[in-house]
Amino acid sequence: MLTKIYERNPSEKELQRVVDVLERDGIVIYPTDSVYAFGCSLRSPRAIDRLRRIRGKSSGELAVVFGSIAQIAEYCRVDNAAFRTLKRNLPGPFTFVLAASSRVPDKALERRQTIGVRIPANAVARAVVSALGCPLVTASVREDGEAEYTTDPELIHERYGREVSLVIDGGTGDCVPTTVVDLTGGEPEVLREGRGELR
C-alpha cells in the first residue's frame, strides 16, 4: 500500500493508518531528512526480526528514531556534553551513537551496549513517532547503483511493496545518508560523513 502524507500538514487519518500497521507488527517505509527508511515499532520483536531479514542487517546497524531529546534520554544514557551536542544538531540528518539503557529491548540491541539515535528534520517521521507513542527501529533504504529506487516513493513501493505493509509517499527523497557521530567517548567522533555538518 502506498499512502501520501504531506510534511507541511500530516493527515491524522493517514497517520492513524500507519500506526495501525505498526501496532500489528508491520513494517513501513517512510521519508526522513536524508534517505527513505524502513521503520517498525520498538515494541515489536517480530517486526524487528523481519526488518533485519529484509535489510540483511547485522546487529549494530539498526538505529532508533525518537520524537524528542527527552525521549532519547529515557532510552539512552545522556550526559551533559552529549545533551548539548544533541540539542545543537537535532532535529537534523544525524545518527548519534549513545550507550543504551535497559529500556531498549534486547531484540533491538542484539548483545550490543550502544544504539544509534535519530530525530529527523522531517515532520512526517516525527509525526509517526508521536502518533505511535513509542520510538521506531529504523534502517535506511539503500540500493546499489540505482539511486531512484531510494528517492522515488513509487519506485520504492514497486521494489519493496511485497515485503513491507505500507510505503509513505512524502515526496522525492535524498540519496545522501546521515552523518554518524559516536558520543560514547570523551569527544564526539564522526564515524561517517553524510548530510549533516556537526555543530
Rank of each mutant, 00 (worst) to 15 (best):
G171A: 05
A82T: 03
R88E: 15
R142P: 00
R88H: 13
A131N: 07
K107M: 02
I115T: 12
S102F: 03
I54R: 07
R84Y: 04
D144H: 01
S130R: 15
E146C: 03
E148Y: 10
R43L: 14
E146M: 05
G67P: 01
I168M: 07
V128H: 07
A63C: 13
D174P: 00
R142I: 01
H157G: 10
N122M: 03
T172R: 15
D169P: 04
L51W: 05
A82D: 07
R53H: 03
S68V: 08
V117Y: 03
R77D: 11
K107T: 11
A127F: 06
S101D: 09
A47R: 12
T150E: 15
Q71N: 10
A131R: 15
S102K: 14
E110F: 01
N122P: 02
D169S: 10
F94I: 06
L98M: 15
S68I: 11
R55F: 00
L166C: 07
P135I: 04
A139G: 06
Y149N: 02
A47E: 08
R50S: 11
A73Q: 14
P91M: 07
V167L: 03
P105T: 00
A123Q: 12
N89T: 08
D174Y: 09
S44Y: 04
P153A: 10
C76I: 07
V167P: 05
G92R: 07
R111I: 02
D144V: 05
A47H: 11
A81G: 01
S41M: 09
I115M: 14
V65W: 00
G170T: 03
P153V: 09
I115D: 03
A73G: 06
L51Q: 11
H157S: 14
Y160N: 04
V167M: 02
D49Q: 10
A70P: 00
L98E: 13
L98A: 11
P135G: 06
A100I: 14
V137W: 01
R103K: 15
E61N: 12
D152F: 02
R50A: 09
D106N: 13
A108W: 09
P91A: 08
A47Y: 06
A131P: 01
P91R: 06
L51N: 12
G133I: 14
Y160S: 05
I54T: 04
D144S: 12
D174W: 02
Y149K: 14
C76Q: 04
P93L: 09
R55M: 06
V104R: 03
V164C: 05
T138A: 08
A123S: 13
L86T: 07
S58N: 12
L86H: 08
D106R: 13
L90Q: 09
V78A: 08
G133K: 10
L86N: 10
F83W: 11
G67N: 13
D79I: 01
N122Y: 02
F96R: 09
R53S: 12
P93Q: 08
A108G: 12
R142E: 09
T114C: 05
R112G: 04
R159A: 11
I54P: 08
G56E: 08
I156M: 07
P153K: 10
R111L: 07
A108C: 13
G171E: 06
A82Y: 04
V167H: 02
F94C: 12
A47T: 04
L166K: 03
I48P: 02
A131F: 07
P135M: 11
L51G: 10
G133A: 11
D49G: 13
E110L: 05
A139T: 01
R52P: 05
V164I: 09
